Simulated assay, not measured.
Amino acid sequence: MDEALRRAMSQARMSDRELAEHCGVDSKTVSRWITQTSRVPHARHRWAVSEALGEDESVLWPAAAKKLVKAGPDREVAEVFPYRSACPASLWRTLITKAERELTFAGYTNYFLWLEHARFGTVLRRKAGAGCRVRFLVGDPDSELTRVREQEEGVALSLSTRIRVTLSELEKLKEDGIDARLSSGHAYLSVFRFDNDMIVTPLLTHRVGHDAPTLHLRRCQDDGMFDRFASHVQELWTRGAPVWKGTDEQA
């Protein structure tokens, strides 16, 4: 019997069926997670359960969390996904929800965020209001680089259109302490930071963002992979052009 999971479900007043619906599995699967300690959920389901119950994964499945502890140069790599679309929505939601100090979205369009996350603007307002720094680094829709990438992608909803949709959504948030800058230096690399967690997607030619291989990084050391990507984004932010006049110029 997985007492930690059973106790967390009881405290959250969540039934097997309700948790199953949240995780996208059958209720019998949840029952097996509880009654058979050898049945540890897949990583994406562990994230979904943790989010639903408001409990850390290491508390619910300490053995699984221990196996993920690494000592080599790849220890900051928490998980790898073959496509960004394979990165579970529950992971994004959990990272955004738990971030307290910094949310940085340095995708070239960031368009998918509004598509895939309900009431995203409301969430950003709440985060900024609680003192979290919220930044968006977006590609310049009128740049030559954007035009070249549009030709490479060859999709109906063009890159510049997706950027303009994002800028339109951000326009609604400019009075809420949310900052945005234009940059062309990250056309083939998207970095999304949530305090000490990060999602990185190196974009491939002739591919759209959701087809990009994706890394979930967690900061464990100085000058590791996390810090190097963070420095890259900070340099682009410093070089970037504010989207709105009067935007805070601090780096």
Results as ranks from 00 to 15, higher is better:
residue 181 R to D: 08
residue 141 P to F: 04
residue 77 V to P: 00
residue 63 A to Y: 08
residue 20 A to V: 06
residue 127 K to M: 00
residue 192 F to S: 15
residue 75 R to L: 03
residue 194 F to K: 11
residue 5 L to K: 04
residue 110 N to V: 05
residue 177 G to I: 07
residue 106 A to M: 06
residue 108 Y to G: 05
residue 228 R to K: 12
residue 239 R to W: 01
residue 99 A to H: 07
residue 98 K to A: 13
residue 22 H to K: 15
residue 129 G to S: 06
residue 165 V to T: 11
residue 87 C to A: 13
residue 207 R to G: 03
residue 81 F to E: 09
residue 228 R to C: 13
residue 238 T to Q: 13
residue 101 R to W: 06
residue 72 G to I: 00
residue 213 P to K: 01
residue 26 D to V: 07
residue 54 G to F: 00
residue 206 H to N: 10
residue 34 I to H: 00
residue 242 P to V: 09
residue 115 L to C: 12
residue 157 L to V: 12
residue 227 D to K: 04
residue 112 F to I: 12
residue 134 V to G: 01
residue 40 V to C: 07
residue 250 Q to G: 13
residue 48 A to I: 05
residue 209 G to T: 07
residue 91 L to T: 03
residue 244 W to R: 14
residue 201 T to D: 09
residue 109 T to L: 06
residue 7 R to Y: 08
residue 95 L to C: 08
residue 189 L to R: 02
residue 215 L to F: 14
residue 219 R to I: 06
residue 122 T to N: 13
residue 148 V to C: 11
residue 219 R to E: 13
residue 236 L to F: 02
residue 129 G to M: 05
residue 34 I to R: 15
residue 207 R to I: 03
residue 84 R to V: 05
residue 49 V to S: 03
residue 130 A to H: 02
residue 184 S to T: 14
residue 206 H to D: 08
residue 212 A to E: 05
residue 79 E to C: 08
residue 177 G to S: 10
residue 160 S to W: 05
residue 238 T to S: 13
residue 172 K to F: 00
residue 67 K to H: 10
residue 69 V to C: 04
residue 197 D to P: 01
residue 213 P to Y: 00
residue 194 F to P: 07
residue 210 H to R: 11
residue 12 A to K: 02
residue 130 A to L: 10
residue 139 G to S: 10
